[in-house]
């Protein structure tokens, strides 16, 4: 009972209450919404994210401990992780390093900012730019005009890609057609997809609250 049923009862109580309170414009209802949804949920959510980081540390440490294949790279990962955490909490004041727990001084430190600017930003941009090459090979497969639907896809994508082309005369028409494609058929398609996603999310949330969807609790 206390291992499985009680958590599902809690999901129903909190879920049903939070769904109903939206339709009650009373200050006590708003207070409870702000207290639980805006104050409690972010705190619990931060611990859930910390759980992911802890899991990353655990997996990497196990890899190093058991000398599994490519364990050396886990050393690099942990070194990067702990270095930036160190500089996020320790600030050099004069000759000494001070531990700043309650203030966010660490965010302004030279090393913390440089680790972000010269490792995270170029890494992120390069990984995403790498996708340009893989998208090019995907385009080759997707953009073959085998039927009407593939031809529509190909035409829309080509017009979008040529909209900044400097070819005299053609560039202007491509730009106008691309703008129309983005604001008319693309808007209609996106609108349908967003409505579909919204209905899907409402249905899933209702399944969770009513206890029909239980996969997130795990087994046991």
């Amino acid at each position: 009972m206390h291992k499985r049923q009680l958590p599902f009862i809690l999901v129903f109580i909190f879920g049903a209450f939070m769904a109903v309170q939206y339709f009650m414009p009373h200050e006590s209802s708003e207070f409870i919404y702000e207290f639980f949804a805006l104050d409690w949920v972010p705190i619990i959510g931060i611990f859930a994210l910390a759980l992911g980081i802890w899991s990353l540390i655990k997996v990497s440490w196990d890899k190093i401990k058991h000398r599994r294949q490519d364990w050396q790279y886990s050393v690099v990962l942990l070194a990067g992780l702990f270095t930036i955490i160190f500089f996020g909490f320790f600030v050099k004041v004069g000759e000494h390093w001070e531990f700043r727990f309650m203030t966010s001084d660490g965010l302004q430190s030279y090393m913390f900012r440089h680790l972000f600017d010269y490792i995270v930003i170029p890494g992120q941009a390069t990984v995403f730019s790498l996708l340009a090459f893989y998208i090019a090979s995907a385009s080759y497969r997707a953009f073959r005009a085998r039927n009407l639907l593939a031809t529509l896809l190909l035409s829309a994508a080509l017009i979008m890609m040529l909209r900044f082309s400097p070819i005299p005369g053609l560039g202007e028409y491509m730009s106008k057609t691309a703008t129309w494609l983005l604001n008319v058929p693309n808007l209609a398609a996106k609108r349908a997809i967003i409505i579909g996603i919204g209905l899907g999310m409402v249905a899933t949330a209702m399944k969770v609250v009513l206890g029909i969807e239980r996969g997130y609790m795990g087994k046991g």
Binding site: F12, F14, G15, A16, A19, F36, G198, M206, G220
Partner: peptide, 29 residues
């Protein structure tokens, strides 16, 4: 003790799912 983690998870999921029902309906649909 893994079952203990279901309690914070239940409160988190319950609040998030409950809030999502009217908000998703309003904002997306």
């Amino acid at each position: 003790w893994a079952w203990v983690s279901r309690y914070p998870m239940a409160i988190y999921i319950g609040i998030a799912a409950g809030v999502a029902i009217p908000l998703e309906m309003t904002n997306r649909v």
